[in-house]
Each structure stands twice: as C-alpha cells, then as structure tokens.
Amino acid sequence: MFDPASSAAVNFFLADVAGGLGPFLPTWFAEALHWSPERIGLIMTLGGVFGLLLNTPGGALVDRFGRPKRLVMAGSSLILLGVATMVIGHALPYVIAGEMIQAMGAAVVGPAMAATTILYVGKRHFPSQQGRNSAWSNAGNVSAAILIFLGARHYGANMPLLVLAGMAALTLITLVILKAPTGASSRIGLASGGEPMGFRDFVRQRPVFIFAVTLLFFNLGNGAMLPLLGLRLAHFGGAHGNDATRWMSLCVIVSQFAMIGVAIGAGRLAEQIGRVPLLIGACALLPVRAVVAAFGIAPIWLIPVEILDAAGAGTIGVITPPLAADLSWGSGRTQTILGFVMTVQGIGAAFSNALGGALIGWLGWKFAFLGLGVPPLSALALALWLRSMTRGHSTD
C-alpha cells in the first residue's frame, strides 16, 4: 500500500543526501581548502566522470536485483560515507576516494527511487507522482539551505556538513518506516514471461539516444552555472561584504522555493500535454538564464537567475524518469535505460565544470556565462527532433 506521508518524508530528507554537498562543494573547496577555480573544476569533473561510469550499472542493478527501497538505503549510506571520507581527510587522495564512494551511492539512489515510485503508483500516474516527489525534494533542499544560511555565520563552510549529517540520519529513519512496495520489483514494465531487451536491440533505440544527447547538451551548459555563481561570489566577496557560503545558500533557497511550484506543475502538465513539449521549453530557457547571469553581477540578480534555473532544470528533473520509462517500457530494462540517460547527461554536467573553469581563465567571468549558454541551443534542436519522432505517442 502506498503511504503518501512516509514517501513525502523520504523525498524531503533524501534530497540533501542524494546531492552530497551539491552546490556548496566548490565553495567548501575554495574556503576550507583554498583551491583555485581551475583545480576545483578539475576535481568536480573527475567526480562527475566516476558517476557517469557507474550510472548505467546502477540502473541495471535495480532492474535485476529489485528491492528498490533497500537499494535507496544502501546508496544513501554510501553517499554519507563518501562525504565523510572527503571532509575528514582534506588531502587530495581522500577527496578523490570520497568522490568515488559518493558516485557509487548516487548511481543507485536515482533509479531505485524511480522504480519505487512506479511500483507504488503505476506508469500512468508516474509523472504526477514524480512531480510531487520533486516538490518534496525541493522543500527539503530549501530547508537545508535555510539552516546553512542561519548557521554559516558561526560555522562557515562547514555548516553544510552538519546539515548533511542530520538529513542522512533522518533519511535512514524514514526509509525504515516506509512500507516496501508489493509485487514483482525487478524487470519493471516487462510482460509476464517476456525476455529483457538485448544489447543489439538497445543500440537501435534512436529516440533514447536523442533524448540522452539532448540532456548532455543541456547539462553541459547548466551544470556549471550555479557553481560558477558560487565561485564568483567567493572571488568578489569582499566587494559585497558577505561570505560566499551565505550568498550561496540564498541562491539555493530562491531556486528551490521556485522549484516546488515548478515540480508540481510540471508533473501535472506532463500527463496532460506530454513530456517532450516540456523538454523543449526547458531547453529554450537555459540560454536566457546564461545571458542574465553574465550581465547580472549584483547579488539581486541571483533571484531571476535562480527562478530561470527552477523553470528549466526543475522541469528536466521531473520529466526525465517518466520520459525514460516511456521510451523503454516493455524492454525489461527501464532503470538500465534511465541509468544510461543519466550517464550521458552526466557527461555534460561533468565537463560543464571544466568548461566553465576554462572559460573563466580564457575569457573572464562574463563570457564564461555566455559560453555556457551555447550548448543548450543544440539541446533545443535535438528536443524538437525528438518531438517529430514521438508525435502521437504517450511522450508527446
């Protein structure tokens, strides 16, 4: 039986855990370890590479093993262990080891949560429930960011670590309370007695690849924007009279508040008008965000920049699991394909940080943001192509 209250609590607390230190990580590198933007960009790229190598195997594990609730618990524990390893060690080898452990956990958490949701509500209501899940996740992120903002004055860049530890403990408690879904939990979407799709059939799934590459270009532009805002705040912190950690928490608060409404609306719209039209709209918003971020240097410009982030990235976050399920339903590999899509989009997110750091060194802050607005134009073209291929299907 589906328990909405427990499910909401899991998504609320899991949000901060699943992202590790998230956008606060580059700020922690800069303030606690005193690393340069170029080195920070390289380390975050390495972390992204670890993650993208493990996403598809993580999804395959969920398809084959089932028991997605248990896998969410295991993945959450690994993420916490990875952050602890990185923070306690401080030195470069510990940071790299911590990034690897976090990647192992994150590779399982996403597909396992998607599988759990499908088992509870079914494929038909998956988009709207995914929207509610995202809304609770965003509410959790807002709460964590507020706590970080309030405590940053006393604890500085270490405040995100304290919040993460508390959220992790509460996540595990709520997962224990949450009732496991009933019925078969492996090979979701596969007809009874059917055989899972083979590798040769998988590589022929052109809509899946187009969707994945669309997300690659989207994240190539989007992945580094919020971290670059944090680095710019740290770099010019003296001019604003405030530390970067507190300003970064304000960025997250604004974005996550907006994403709560976006998530609920996107989930409902995804069932009414389809997933691909929302993908097109999200891709069209990102170049606008890049222009605003490039010219809006004053802190007040963080508000429209992060509202655009909510509308674009928030929509992508809601529709990605349902659209991956649409494109792979009946294959017996729904979570493997979701993992593959996350792998490809992770390539864009990982290299986005390196691209952003390089653009700062080559062209300066303004043109770095403008440069990050170019890849989403390719994403927009691919999304329009995907719509032409899927017109008349449940995705459109």
Rank of each mutant, 00 (worst) to 15 (best):
Phe218Lys: 00
Leu175Asn: 11
Leu190Met: 10
Pro227Gln: 06
Val176Tyr: 11
Ala168Glu: 04
Phe236Leu: 13
Leu178Phe: 09
Phe236Met: 07
Asp201Glu: 15
Val203Phe: 09
Val208Pro: 01
Leu215Trp: 11
Ile188Ala: 01
Phe236Tyr: 14
Ile173Tyr: 14
Ala168Leu: 10
Ala212Lys: 08
Phe202Trp: 14
Phe236Thr: 13
Phe209Lys: 09
Pro196Trp: 10
Gly241His: 14
Arg232Thr: 03
Ala168Trp: 10
Gly198Cys: 12
Ala168Lys: 01
Lys179Ile: 03
Met197Glu: 14
Pro181Asn: 04
Val203Lys: 12
Leu233Trp: 00
Leu228Val: 03
Pro207Gly: 06
Ala184His: 14
Phe199Glu: 06
Ala184Gln: 15
Leu215Glu: 02
Met225Ile: 11
Phe211Gly: 02
Gly237Trp: 01
Phe217Ile: 10
Thr171Cys: 03
Ser192Trp: 09
Ala234Phe: 01
Ala169Val: 14
Arg187Gly: 05
Leu172Gly: 06
Ile188Trp: 00
Phe218Asp: 00
Gly223Asp: 00
Lys179Leu: 08
Phe236Gly: 08
Phe199Asp: 05
Arg204Ser: 14
Ser192Pro: 13
Pro227His: 02
Arg187Trp: 07
Ile177Arg: 15
Pro181Ala: 00
Ala180Gln: 04
Arg232Leu: 05
Phe202Gln: 09
Arg232Glu: 03
Val176His: 10
Leu216Asn: 08
Ala191Thr: 11
Ile173Gly: 13
Gly193Ser: 13
Gly238Thr: 10
Thr214Cys: 13
Ala234Asn: 07
Ala180Tyr: 00
Pro207Gln: 10
Leu233Met: 05
Gly241Leu: 09
Gly183His: 07
Ile210Thr: 07
Phe218Arg: 01
Met167Asn: 04
Asp201Phe: 07
Arg200Leu: 15
Leu226Ile: 15
Gly241Met: 12
Leu229Cys: 07
Leu190Tyr: 07
Leu231His: 01
Leu215Thr: 04
Asn222Phe: 06
Ile173Asp: 10
Leu220Cys: 03
Ala239Leu: 05
Leu190Gln: 10
Ala234Leu: 07
Gly194Lys: 14
Ala184Ile: 11
Ser185Phe: 00
Gly241Asp: 07
Leu231Lys: 01
Gly183Lys: 09
Gly189Asp: 05
Pro196Ile: 04
Arg200Gln: 15
Phe236Glu: 14
Ala239Lys: 09
Gly221Lys: 02
Arg200Lys: 15
Leu175Glu: 05
Arg206Tyr: 14
Ala180Thr: 06
Leu233Asp: 02
Leu228Pro: 00
Pro181Tyr: 03
Gly194Ala: 15
Glu195Leu: 15
